[in-house]
Nucleic acid binder design. Structure first.
Lengths: 252, 252
DNA sequence: GGCAAAATAATGTGATCACAAATCCCGAGG
DNA sequence: CCTCGGGATTTGTGATCACATTATTTTGCC
């Protein structure tokens, strides 16, 4: 019987992994402008490393769809469109619905407690109006459910999808999350997990994703483009420190 | 600057892309033994290139799950287990079922003709007992359907999943494919696509995948391991600077 | 002044090197 | 025979260099 709930490669101290983590963090927090060209040497300069680990990290992100490569072999941040959001919505409904169904059959009691805790912390952050913590806890809630499914390949796929939709989930604040249906749906999801009702868990997860991403799709302009919510603080640094990489937000 | 014999893939002529294609082909045709350690220098030597493109190609395959990386940073061909087959089965049912449903709504007349042609060629190869062509045409049939769905992200995900299950689909021959349910199911799928019946198309696709991968899961030994069907042919390595992608099948 | 061509800079790609960690090998000791 | 230790070898990692291609700027001509 193989161990399933294996933690991610946390022991990987390679520069490549650190660059990957830095870029991933910068992408999900929206510190790159959509369509922005990101060169290897720029990233290497900001992070103070050579091209080698940067190339490998960025190629992985290209493979995951977080970056895209032009035919003229330059790497860019993908533009988000209504069609792409709708495609990602349908894929995520399938996969995260499947994960919720599996979780209903496999979740242990401490795992359910962890999920419940995350749900409480979402509400706490939300009543405080702390949208940053809110978003973080929403992520923890979802991935606590997916971890309970104990399906490593499925988890990896879902992480890749979140990487693509990540910068745009800020758009749900503050309007969308004021709807009371979110908390109620999470409660019904927890109930379904506890009852082992796979169909109900899947339904609740699918509804949650459908509502959120349909809302984001509705924010597209007349050309179908969607701009991410840009954090107000855009800083510029030249520090060669890989641990706290801050990427300048350049406009083309 | 050595040339590598690769199928005409895309406009990307980089060595990295050629190495990627070679390794991918070797993996799907089962020329690597499960659990086999694959070193960068070995691949570089066989293909006659330096480490740089090999590293990038292999890292991409690791990201896609076609290779796996040990904590001691060596790259291996993943072992297939019953649990993993069942997980991949459920994921593929979701995603390829979704693609079939989308295809039912979006397929054009020439695309349906292409799908129908592939189905005919499967039957032709099967009556000849040509299992190699059979497998190739099954792949063409499926991906003709997925292409008709016109969902680029979904297509990329499905390709990644086929890369992981690929070496084990040989196990369906010759016993499993003798079942007459395959051709009948494909015909019903085509009918559903033509009628624009998304639910029926999804159902047929899901049934096809469920049957095939459940059969493969049933081939696991008492430890849950599944060995791929090894092609009887290739086992010989040519010169150290071979100009095409023939990988020796090493046993550890 | 406008614009195309040449010159220059920027950038991705692939090879090579140095180095540390992991692995392998082989013999001593039981 | 087997186990264990230590040196030799293998292997992944990161940096650096050379080069071709693409992008940008400057120049020269009308």
């Amino acid at each position: 019987m193989p161990r399933i709930a294996t933690p991610p490669d946390a022991a990987d101290t390679s520069l490549r992994q650190q660059v990957y983590a830095s870029l991933r963090e910068a992408l999900t927090s929206g510190r790159f402008a959509p369509g922005q060209k990101v060169t290897f040497r720029y990233v290497a300069g900001v992070l103070g490393v050579s091209l080698t680990p940067v190339r490998e990290a960025m190629r992985r992100l290209v493979a995951e769809g977080a970056f895209e490569m032009n035919p003229n072999r330059s790497v860019r941040v993908p533009l988000m469109t209504r069609d792409k959001v709708l495609e990602l919505r349908d894929i995520r409904m399938e996969l995260e619905g499947l994960a919720a169904a599996k979780a209903a059959l496999a979740a242990t009691r401490p795992q359910i407690a962890e999920i419940r805790r995350a749900a409480r912390e979402i509400l706490a952050a939300r009543t405080r109006g702390d949208s940053a913590t809110d978003r973080q806890k929403v992520r923890e809630f979802h991935f606590a459910v997916y971890a309970a499914a104990a399906q490593p390949t499925l988890l990896r796929l879902i992480e890749g999808l979140w990487l693509q939709t990540g910068p745009y989930m800020n758009l749900l604040y503050p309007d969308f999350i004021s709807s009371p249906r979110g908390p109620a749906g999470r409660q019904r999801l927890i109930d379904a997990l506890q009852a082992g009702d796979a169909a109900a868990a899947r339904r609740e997860m699918e509804n949650d994703i459908r509502r959120a991403l349909s809302y984001v799709a509705g924010l597209a302009d007349e050309n179908g483009n969607i701009a991410p919510a840009i954090p107000a603080t855009v800083r510029k640094r030249r520090s060669p420190s890989a641990s706290d990489a801050i990427f300048e937000l350049r406009v083309n």
